[in-house]
């Protein structure tokens, strides 16, 4: 059966005493006809690509195709030991920007769920997995959890910036990562649900305002915030903090906020910082001026 709500998958998991990833894997296997092993293998391939993009982006400055950005992940990584935010948050945030830097340089990434938000899930899972000494297999399973949460958000709201703003891309990625971080840390399915709700609420209303329409400014830094927030949301949920509003209602609200946002604030580069004086000047410089 397909799970259309977080409530359904959380209740099924808890009734079976299973993880969300176990239930999701079983469901996916039934729906696609692929065995659980085959699904895990396919996801392990995606995980390899994620790991490569992280290590590329933190080991050197990679300029974007437009020249507008580059090296954000690398620079923050240099400050992991001395920064104010603490090692876990700093590592995750550096890695998130590292993947976004690779994306902006025409490198190979995994859309997760989109290219614009591709840094958040890899960075959170790799960082949390590393801190907890988890195996690659555990992290691949956690990716299954992120995917099923993403699927439920896609059914009930949207994952596209053009439809729902940045909250739909980076917000969803952050929520998906938060659920998986809880699972990796040994939290319950219900705590994963609260982490999704808390992360989505933290980023609700965030607009999509890319300067010159490119996936760079402010997207790369927003990937860092999405990653940091996912970890904080997971910690809150595991401390027993609950979302007053049930997670499925939060997801629906995010979708409705997305619909209510004016088109200027949904990937059209007509509002927000894209419409700032400097944003417009950069746009003129980067776009074909005769258009």
């Amino acid at each position: 059966m397909t799970f259309f709500t977080m409530k359904e998958i959380i209740e099924t998991s808890e009734r079976k005493g299973a993880k969300i990833s176990d239930v999701a894997l079983e469901m996916e296997s039934k729906e696609t006809g692929l065995s659980a092993d085959e699904i895990m293998k396919k996801m392990a391939y995606n995980y390899e690509i994620m790991k490569n993009s992280v290590s590329q982006g933190i080991s050197k400055i990679i300029p974007s195709i437009s020249g507008l950005t580059g090296g954000e992940g690398y620079r923050l990584w240099q400050n992991v030991k001395n920064g104010l935010s603490g090692e876990t948050i700093l590592k995750a945030s550096s890695r998130a920007m590292a993947v976004s830097n690779v994306n902006a340089s025409m490198g190979r990434i995994v859309a997760s769920p989109t290219a614009g938000s591709c840094g958040i899930i890899p960075s959170v899972l790799i960082t949390v997995g590393e801190k907890l000494g988890k195996s690659d297999n555990d992290i691949v399973k956690a990716l299954i959890t992120t995917a099923v949460v993403g699927k439920i958000i896609a059914y009930n709201a949207t994952l596209a910036g053009a439809e729902g703003g940045c909250q739909a891309e980076c917000g969803s990625a952050s929520a998906m990562a938060a659920a998986a971080a809880v699972e990796l840390a040994g939290g319950t399915p219900s705590q994963s649900g609260h982490a999704v709700a808390i992360a989505l609420k933290g980023i609700m209303g965030l607009i999509c305002d890319p300067v010159a329409g490119l996936v760079e400014v402010p997207c790369i830094k927003r990937n860092a915030f999405g990653a940091a927030q996912a970890i904080l949301a997971a910690d809150m949920a595991m401390a027993g903090i609950e979302s007053v509003i049930p997670v499925d209602e939060v997801i629906k609200a995010m979708g409705e906020v997305g619909h209510a946002l004016p088109v200027e604030l949904k990937e059209t580069a007509m509002g927000g910082i894209a419409a700032s004086e400097t944003g417009k000047n950069l746009e003129k410089k980067l776009m074909r001026e005769d258009m």
């Binding site: 396919k42 995606n46 974007s64 025409m106 490198g107 997760s112 099923v148 896609a154 996936v215």
Partner: peptide, 21 residues
């Protein structure tokens, strides 16, 4: 929609519409 439409595809960035498409 399957889970690899959510975590995936593997693609060259930066944009699924403007690059991968």
């Amino acid at each position: 929609m399957n889970i690899f439409d959510i975590i995936g595809p593997v693609m060259i960035g930066p944009s699924s519409s403007h690059t991968a498409g």
